[in-house]
Design a binder for these strands. Structure first.
Length: 418
RNA sequence: GCGGGUAUAGCUCAGGGGUUAGAGCGCCUGACUGUGGCUCAGGAGGCCGCGGGUUCGAGACCCGCUAUCCGCCCCA
């Protein structure tokens, strides 16, 4: 019996791990510039944290959570998303005292029991950040701007922030009714279960890919028609801010998000490389979430970006300039030089140079082949002759250039050439 | 949760009832002394996804399972 990774999970093998490291480091750097600090929360939480916040009708809560009873008869759930746990921790540690603003970032696995597909796993990973405590449209714009900067830094070209506004509760109420009336004929022909779902949350109908649903939706006026004074003003202001910041965006009335805690602003970034899973990230404002968790009313906005999905897009576009090539390969031309080769390698590493060496003392031909394969730009050759003279052969791989220098100059030379 | 495709070497894939299962790429070794890439020669590496069935005989046909991919649903 050979084991394999559980369905919907994936190993990150050494040949790919640099991609994860790159995405995470770009994320940390971008977010750092705006003053966000990392928050780490547990892998599992009380189940109720998610049922209370994500929405009882949402698919995540109704059928996608990894929920189990622990040995103390507590209902536990592996976190299906990052925002609710972050807000729970924020309250628990009073990270955002009343009147203050907090900026938090996180890198986390998320778990959803779904049928796996390309870009859709049961254990996936997200990077995300939250701007807590401000109702200013500048907060919405900041979050969207950072998100787009992140994708730009990764080199993902042509991305556009697809933005929409769900308005405040009263706007949504009117809009829900408008959806139900204008799609009544279509709905009547649908399965009862589906009708029920739409009645509970009509917004769900909007991002359906079913052609007949899309046809029916055409008669629904955009939700932004229903935005009342303050919501309207906020949405306009956000657009103005994004335009000023040179952030590419488009108004996208079909973007409504699958988590019920969103209010006012919602947005996504999509990519065609992802097939049926078109969303690269999703975010928005959640002004009621913290109060829902028992905290003071705290307007907040945030976003979560899929790491695996970013990797798919970057693979597709060939955006990985270099992997993890070593700087230099040390080659022992004769066995007698082994100790000296080891010393040399140690010195190189002391100076921060990634240095490889064939520990199996294979033939020189083999060592050179390995050096070539490794992608190192330089090979250093050291044998009896060089030992006697106190020198080293420096070979530039990729050309046939080779020269001899005193061993004492080697580190400086490699630093210069690499 | 529903529908469809696929599963053979590390990778991409051929073989469609009949001896010891193949190719390309990759890997290892060698082609006079201590020199890579190109070329040539040799070699290693397969429970043909797992379990059952049909058959004189199954990698191939049938059933179940598992995994994966695509679509629906949903979303990162």
């Amino acid at each position: 019996m050979r084991f394999q990774a559980p369905r919907g999970t994936a190993d990150v093998v050494p040949a790919d791990s640099f991609k994860w490291q790159r995405i995470e480091s770009v994320f940390r750097e971008v977010v750092r510039l705006y003053g966000y600090y990392e928050l780490r929360t547990p892998t599992f939480e009380d189940t109720e944290l998610f049922t209370r916040t994500a929405g009882e009708t949402s698919d995540i809560v109704t059928k996608q959570m990894y929920t189990f009873m622990d040995k103390g008869d507590r209902s536990i759930t592996l976190k299906p998303e990052g925002t609710a746990p972050a807000m729970r921790a924020l309250l628990e540690h009073n990270l955002c005292p009343t009147g203050a603003v907090a900026r938090l970032s996180y890198v986390t696995p998320i778990f959803r029991y779904e049928r796996p597909q390309k870009g859709r796993l049961r254990e996936a990973h997200q990077v995300g950040f939250e701007l807590v405590g401000s109702s200013s449209p500048l907060a919405d714009a900041e979050v969207i701007e950072i998100t787009m900067k992140f994708y730009q830094e990764l080199g993902i070209a042509g991305t556009v922030a697809m933005i929409n506004s769900l308005g405040r509760e009263s706007c949504r109420q009117q809009f829900r009714e408008a959806i139900l009336t204008s799609t009544a004929a279509y709905l009547a022909d649908q399965p009862l279960e589906f009708q029920e779902k739409v009645r509970k949350n009509p917004l769900r109908l909007l991002d359906s890919k079913d052609p007949s649903a899309q046809e029916a939706i055409k008669s629904v006026p955009p939700i932004t028609n229903y935005l009342e004074g303050e919501s309207r003003a906020r949405f306009d202001k956000i657009q103005e801010l994004l335009t000023d910041a040179n952030v590419p965006y488009q108004l996208s009335p079909e973007v409504v998000r699958g988590l019920d805690y969103y209010t006012e602003t919602v947005f996504e970034v999509q990519s065609t490389s992802l097939g049926a899973q078109s969303a690269l990230c999703g975010g928005g404002r959640y002004d009621n979430l913290i109060a829902e968790l028992g905290g003071p009313a705290t307007p907040s906005v945030g976003v979560a970006m899929g790491i695996e999905r970013a990797i798919i897009v970057m693979d597709d576009a060939g955006l990985w300039p270099n992997g993890n090539e070593p700087d230099v390969f040390v080659i022992q031309a004769t066995d007698q030089a082994q100790t000296e080769c080891q010393r040399l390698a140690r010195n190189l590493r002391q100076s921060g140079l990634v240095t490889l060496f064939d520990i199996d003392s294979r033939s020189m031909k083999s060592q050179l082949r390995q050096a070539d394969k490794s992608g190192a730009p330089i090979a250093l050759i050291l044998g009896e002759d060089e030992l006697a003279k106190g020198t080293v052969q420096v070979k530039r791989l990729g050309s046939s250039e080779q020269f001899e220098i005193p061993i004492s100059d080697v580190v400086a030379k490699v630093l210069e050439l690499k």
